[in-house]
């Protein structure tokens, strides 16, 4: 391909399986009551999809917290996967029959760039591998047609095994490697960070999991931190979010510990661009936001 590739949009696309459950897609076996506990987030995803409909893209590149690797950063390297994904944590909500194609060439290119940057990396070539529900949920909610290939990157456990700071430094290197590989590939990519924000769960569930009278944030600390981070996103303060990330992760028990958002900010090269917060809501007490940085529109405006 002659045109240089680019990241069309960077997206924070949280993956509570509850949102798939609530949407009742044909791939998922359990049926929800549609009682409405997570409507704010489902509306957010709908607005995001409307925004994305204005853009062309070739591939979704997802960084997922639910493929947890302790031996570095792993990449799916098999052209096609299908099977059934049952969430080990919420199996009552998510029994999803998946079929997806992998952009193995781009996956290998990101792997090679990351390895050249000194990161520990591994291609995953076992065709029996069960694709994690973080990748499936985020990709489904962003682009339910499943007509584009995917690149899925595991969450290396550096932040858990060493420190939040060490984890974020690896995500910085991995994000930059991702950007270089996308540019060299000629692909137009959507980059998806598949994490929640505040991430303390309730440890019980109501009779109807979708009962809106049960759903609220775990506590005020969680919600105050989420508001703060969303404020920085709307203000275009991407660098400051990255700088505050270790504290946010620590003090808010945030799923950013898994590195997805740090990776995304680095892949986008910290644009001083106000993000669009399409929706915010809680799922079993955790804070989730659907957010996009519409890089293509910003490019068009800049060149107009």
């Amino acid at each position: 391909m002659s045109e240089p590739g680019r990241i069309v949009a960077g997206i924070l696309s949280p993956h509570p399986p509850h949102l798939i459950y609530a949407s009742n897609p044909p791939q998922n076996e359990p049926r929800s009551s549609r009682a409405g506990a997570w409507n704010g987030l489902l509306d957010g995803y709908e607005k995001l999809r409307a925004e994305l409909a204005r853009h062309e893209f070739d591939v979704l590149v997802a960084h997922t917290p639910h493929w947890k690797t302790r031996t570095g950063h792993h990449f799916l390297g098999v052209p096609h996967f299908e099977g059934k994904s049952v969430d080990p944590i919420f199996p009552n909500l998510f029994q999803y029959n998946f079929a997806l194609d992998i952009d193995v060439e781009l996956s290998e290119a990101i792997h090679d760039e990351a390895a050249a940057a000194g990161l520990s990396t591994r291609m995953m070539r076992n065709p029996e591998f069960r694709v994690d529900y973080g990748t499936i949920t985020s990709c489904h909610l962003v682009h339910p047609a499943w007509d584009k290939p995917v690149v899925a990157i595991s969450s290396a456990r550096t932040a858990f095994d060493y420190s939040n700071e060490a984890g974020d430094q690896e995500m910085l290197a991995l994000g930059r490697a991702t950007r270089r590989a996308i540019e060299a590939s000629g692909r137009r990519a959507l980059c998806l960070a598949s994490n929640s924000l505040s991430h303390r769960h309730f440890t019980s569930e109501p009779e109807d999991p979708e009962d809106p009278s049960f759903e609220h944030v775990y506590n005020e600390n969680q919600s105050a931190w989420d508001r703060h981070i969303l404020g920085l996103m709307k203000a275009g303060e991407t660098r400051r979010i990255f700088d505050e990330m270790p504290d946010f992760t620590e003090q808010c028990v945030a799923e950013t510990k898994d590195g997805c958002l740090s990776w995304l900010l680095a892949a986008m090269d910290f644009p001083p661009l106000p993000a669009t917060v399409h929706g915010y809501g809680t799922v079993i007490g955790t804070g989730n936001a659907v957010v996009s940085w519409d890089l293509d529109s910003a490019r068009t405006e800049a060149s107009a």
Partner: peptide
């Protein structure tokens, strides 16, 4: 688990698992 404590009650679980790290 997140929701309390879960007890496996499928009398005959049959499937396959590929380790997240040691897939090769």
């Amino acid at each position: 688990s997140i929701i309390g404590h879960q007890m496996q009650a499928d009398p005959k679980p049959e499937w396959w698992v590929v380790d997240e790290d040691f897939h090769e």
